[in-house]
Nucleic acid binder design. Sequence first.
DNA 1: CTCAGCGTTCAAAGCGCTTTGGAGGTTTTA
DNA 2: TAAAACCTCCAAAGCGCTTTGAACGCTGAG
Lengths: 341, 341
Amino acid sequence: MNLKELAAELHLSQTTVSRALNGYPEVSEKTREIVLAAAQRFGYRPSPAARRLATGRAHALGVVFNAERNALMDPLFVEYLAGVAETSAKQGFDILISPSTPRDEIVTFGRLARDGTVDVVILTGPKVADERIALLSELKFPFVVHGRPPDPVGISFIDIDNFGAFQQATSFLIQLGHRRVMLINGEEHFTFAQDRSRGAAVAFAAAGLPSDMLDEHFMPMTAENAYRCARQALESDARPTAILCGSILVALGVLRAAAELGLEVPRDLSIVAHDDEMPAFPADQFHPQLTTTRSSIRAAGTRVAEMALARVAGQKPGAVAEVWPVQLIVRGSTAAAPEKG
Amino acid sequence: MNLKELAAELHLSQTTVSRALNGYPEVSEKTREIVLAAAQRFGYRPSPAARRLATGRAHALGVVFNAERNALMDPLFVEYLAGVAETSAKQGFDILISPSTPRDEIVTFGRLARDGTVDVVILTGPKVADERIALLSELKFPFVVHGRPPDPVGISFIDIDNFGAFQQATSFLIQLGHRRVMLINGEEHFTFAQDRSRGAAVAFAAAGLPSDMLDEHFMPMTAENAYRCARQALESDARPTAILCGSILVALGVLRAAAELGLEVPRDLSIVAHDDEMPAFPADQFHPQLTTTRSSIRAAGTRVAEMALARVAGQKPGAVAEVWPVQLIVRGSTAAAPEKG
DNA sequence: CTCAGCGTTCAAAGCGCTTTGGAGGTTTTA
DNA sequence: TAAAACCTCCAAAGCGCTTTGAACGCTGAG
């Protein structure tokens, strides 16, 4: 059943039926009701393709995702996607996933923007120098950012307070008496890694401690990388008594390193990790349960999708700039620093 | 630049240009080259929407994913999706993600099938009585299945050898002297859970052991559930000496239960888990490293996408029915059963 | 020399929807 | 009472592509 047939059935023109269905004011309430009822009865569903062609709007939202062999953000991504999906589905928006490797990500974005397959894209994990943002801005293609854009002016984004989270976590460790602290951070070119780095540094400065007590490492946040890094540090003479982990996965690697070296957590080593609340990977299911800085990646996904849809509906870029607070949850993986041996 | 303009530019008809671009034989090689070159030069890209409307084919592949609060398959899903994305991108197919809760999943599938938003859907996690399969079959909408359909006749699917994997793993434990074995399985209504159940049962039967030595539990495979279940069993008088885990997440919960009870793995308790190779969650990053039955969820995603595309290209349903072998990888979480106290 | 046959190209008709520019009919205003 | 102002509704023109049916020029057979 298409519009033409439905219109014929009702002895009305396509115009009127279309308008009735789409809530235009030029049609009387009475006919609208009749049309709506008939549409319902015949199970009429407008063809998305036709509508798309006629309006030039795709009614779809694009998400580019990293399909590289070892997609680091994997478990995060689904949870995030779930959030995005939830709200966009409510508004009848489709979600188009475009796989891409970091190398040709920029091409992928260009294609999305020019093809008209989607009306807006969501950009994740902004970098210190982000050419995707540059490209989309130049093309004047609507987009919103999940994370902190390097230059937020005129860009709608939502981010968690990475700075505050790591400042708080670091201060907490310092208060517990820890002096040699290691930070296993994400890759340097991500803005979130920079923010976290600054947070930790500021905490040290505030406590009047020299910044070289903070041993910071940037790397892709995998368990494997974290294991290697932690193992090496923990075997050294001046081993850290506390490790700040960029993610739960990092904590997994650190835990393994500690276990292998016979170090007990939290007696010999304190661990605090950032937790994005992946239900599959709950911080409280570890042994010991992990002290974390917690934020909901899913809620972020929900919000960023809302923003994207608002953007399509005409909201100005830069209208939204939210930074969500992050909560420190103290569990069993942190304790007072061990007495100096 | 659209087709009309390009055609005008070349002093050719739209027909010819269209055919040249789409590789139809009715156009001479010479003109084809000219057209291709011009298209390249002007950066012409056909409008997907228009093509879709004209051909009735969406050039897109649908994946329904569970956006329920605690999406259990989360970490699996991305890795799987990465596989799907990889191959479908190669063929220029878009991937449409439709969020859905289990409750209205069937509606979602119906909509996808009728709307023409996608040409084929991939169905994941088939159940013993699967109404999605019933619906799609009835609508004669192309689909392929990832996992084992209850009635595979006339259905293209790919699955891993869940039966063989768990038979092998169970036999291995029996050979190590384990007699009280627990199996923490997925939910009963999934075909994969049934297959695994049968695999374990057959191993016991083959060893001439009574089936009640196998303590089997069906549940959503979360760390939390597994923790509870394992904890309870390990505290009981006749505690199991080995636990078969349906997933790495399940193993996480079991490890925690063991640690809390002061049980050492593998001395006091052996663990073998099924591993779908999520790079984010590697079995060899645990302590101890986990003995696993391993299969690549990503490769499965790749293959199932290929199948889906073949299906669109006209391949008959039921043409593919692959069952992939699963390898048992012995690592540090298994050992001979403890002497009877 | 004519005509069938072939290889190329084209004009035009959709695909199913939205939207512009009116056209009728009814009500209000002067 | 006539004109202006509405309220409803409609015919038709796209949106940018594919595809059918036909036309064109050329070659080789009769």
